[in-house]
Design a protein around this nucleic acid. Sequence first.
DNA 1: CCCGTAAACTGAACTGAACTCAGTTGTGGG
DNA 2: CCCACAACTGAGTTCAGTTCAGTTTACGGG
Lengths: 208, 208
Amino acid sequence: MKTAKITEPDEGPRSKRKAILAAAIKNFGKNGYDATKWSVVADQVGIGQTALYHYFESKAHCLLTIMRLELQRSLEMFVKATDGRPDPMEALREAVRSAYTVSERDVPQMRILQNNLAILAVPRSSKKEEAERLAARELVHRIEDAWTELLQRGMDEGAFAHRDAHTLALNMLGMIVSVWRWYRPRGSVTLANVSELTEDCCVRMVAP
Amino acid sequence: MKTAKITEPDEGPRSKRKAILAAAIKNFGKNGYDATKWSVVADQVGIGQTALYHYFESKAHCLLTIMRLELQRSLEMFVKATDGRPDPMEALREAVRSAYTVSERDVPQMRILQNNLAILAVPRSSKKEEAERLAARELVHRIEDAWTELLQRGMDEGAFAHRDAHTLALNMLGMIVSVWRWYRPRGSVTLANVSELTEDCCVRMVAP
DNA sequence: CCCGTAAACTGAACTGAACTCAGTTGTGGG
DNA sequence: CCCACAACTGAGTTCAGTTCAGTTTACGGG
């Protein structure tokens, strides 16, 4: 498969791209993508609505960019966590921990990703949106495949119970990311709590 | 808490409400809620766009109704599956199985529910929409509480390992429903496969 | 059988948020 | 100083969702 790698556009010193992304993340995360008025994002950044189109082709293009960036980060974290770990069980534990090693700034971004995954299923008419969508989709697949491989390796080595590695990986991922639906930084359940419990769940799911 | 029970409106013999719901489910499930044009639903039912407003106050009201109906069904299935089962482990197994005991017609509806859960988080300005939203939210909580209670009971009786029952319930539910994101009726993985694997995962997650 | 009534429906107009267009501003490199 | 191009703007346009002001259709009671 040809990997359409998206490189972030060069940003001049006056560029408001980062600020737009930050404001969009804040609003999409708080009120949801649909309920967020694009013009409010412009207001918060301190520019006119039309200036947004200097940086993003559309509101959807901005959303897709946010999602792709978060997927890139997630994949990177997984690779870092599991790379060069011969023991599958230890790799799995590290992988789960890495999924919850996020700054407070990343939490709404994970929520946006989780809440808008459906948008990745349907093709977009605009070029740039479609490029972002395909890049995001490929990242999703790479993440799923990476987890599948990890589980398969553990099964092959006899460290994990033998089951359909791919479906099991999807189940695990579903559980791990479902947390972002309800988790709130200043809630009664801490990320450390979640991480510990979920790590244990995942270990139990593969125990031979 | 005051339970705002929503009773389905009386339907005359000429009512197209069911047909509208069916068409909306088909389209929302296939292309997503946003990508679906409300007028296309009207076309498929064979009425003018404005006639839709005889049955639903808005497109969002229709979506919320679809979601509430599916949540009602899910809760009912859970209760039926676990009711009068003294053994927590057997109740848990039945609960998971019940979650995948769905007709092919229900699959897109589960997907819609899963893909649009975020809409339940933000208040709506319209009366009827808000009523449906609150009803749906309460159903979500009731389902979560029912699972939590089941797990807590198992822990209290020593049948399950002792952990935070609520977080564990959310993890389980997250895993169970995440399937509707990717499952397709004529795909290579059958619902029976999923059900069996997930049941096993859940049992492992609570094993003492 | 006709009439009153309410459900079911319609075409035309309206709304508002996303987006386009045709330009203007302003800053850093030559 | 001035040019190039990033950064930006106000005034429109578009279009899906919605409202309005009625018209049609079925049905039960007189």
